[in-house]
Design a protein around this nucleic acid. Structure first.
Lengths: 205, 205
DNA sequence: GGGAATATTCCC
DNA sequence: GGGAATATTCCC
């Protein structure tokens, strides 16, 4: 469905140079890209979402809340259909929410689509850089390992697979430890040096 | 740029119901989706790429090679601009190639854009299901595990034992890391304090 | 809400 | 070619 939309547009776009295209281009350049350029390497999702909320030109669809501490999607349908595709490669409200969650936004009201993130506030675009995307942390106990504990029989291949995963995790952990050790010894080495130079300074004074 | 295209189209699409749209929809339904429906849960990339090669209707842009054992992109520019966006959410030749590589396709000629995969051949769409997407394999494959796989049969109990050991090792390593982290932050916290007291000592002396 | 697979981009 | 980050989809 969405592929079709994208395709249909492209077909159309290629056989006619409409003025809409230029209008669109201008909008894009002074809109989304502006923040992007200013904000070093802000993830596109953040700059685009800020744009979307701050100047979609459709406050009846999405806007800041009264305090400017969160934003509210008043008309999810319209957001999906008209606004999302302006900024993203889809028109699904659920995909938008998935991204919000990935970046740590929370639904902050039960009776409306209000989303909040400490670093996402009206007039404070400079805070956006402090929003971090959640990584998929290496889980210590993968879900499929848990299953085994319930007592069912697992074949060799499964165990072998688990073994591999554990080995990988092990290597990764060892690497982390090595890094910590290096950092540690660096610190410990520089400390006496630092103290010595300090002592010297005192003696000289 | 691409976001803009997508957006511009959507804006346009919403204010006019062109017959192109319906044509596009029909094409999409009998094209891409057909294979998809037939082939259980074939990754979209494979069904779409097969479609693209097999019936893009632009053989001067992309087609099977003579034997039907590979496909050739004759006009990368045109593929990117006109065909890719029909099937995917982008118009980048490089993104297309990235996906081909992910699925194990190889460039099979040095003088033209010919790509090949054993299970991707003219008239053999039923083989597509055997193409697997490459996962990010662990680069370090423990040698002792390798040896055992090819060699003698090992019982569950062995693997289970090893698993337990690895799990224990893992926990131990995690604990070590936690200790390092604590020590680290302790050091980092006490450093400025230490400096301050040193300065004070100097002032008093 | 979020895990995980797939897709797209960016970069070496 | 492919690693890795981000985006989109699918599913629990």
């Amino acid at each position: 469905m969405h592929e079709f939309l994208w395709w249909a547009f492209r077909s159309k776009q290629m056989e006619e140079k409409s003025c809409m295209v230029d209008a669109g281009k201008r909008r894009d350049e002074q809109g989304v890209s502006q923040l992007q350029r200013a904000g070093k390497c802000l993830p596109p999702f953040l700059s685009k979402t800020y744009e979307l909320v701050d100047r979609s030109g459709a406050e009846h669809v999405v806007s800041w809340n009264e305090e400017g501490t969160a934003f509210v999607v008043w008309l999810p349908e319209d957001l999906s259909q008209f606004l999302l595709p302006k900024y993203f490669k889809h028109c699904n409200f659920s995909s938008f929410i998935r991204q919000l969650n990935t970046y740590g936004f929370r639904k902050s009201a039960s009776d409306r689509w209000e989303f909040r993130h400490e670093k996402f506030q009206k007039g404070k675009a400079h805070l956006l850089g402090e929003i971090t995307r959640r990584k998929c942390e290496p889980s210590i106990y993968p879900s499929h390992l848990k299953a085994r504990e319930k007592g069912t029989v697992i074949e060799d291949s499964h165990l072998l697979e688990e073994n591999k995963i554990l080995q990988r995790e092990n290597s990764e952990l060892l690497l982390q430890i090595a890094r910590y050790k290096a950092l540690q010894s660096e610190l410990m080495n520089s400390l006496p040096q630092f103290m010595a130079s300090n002592k010297k300074a005192r003696l000289l004074s």
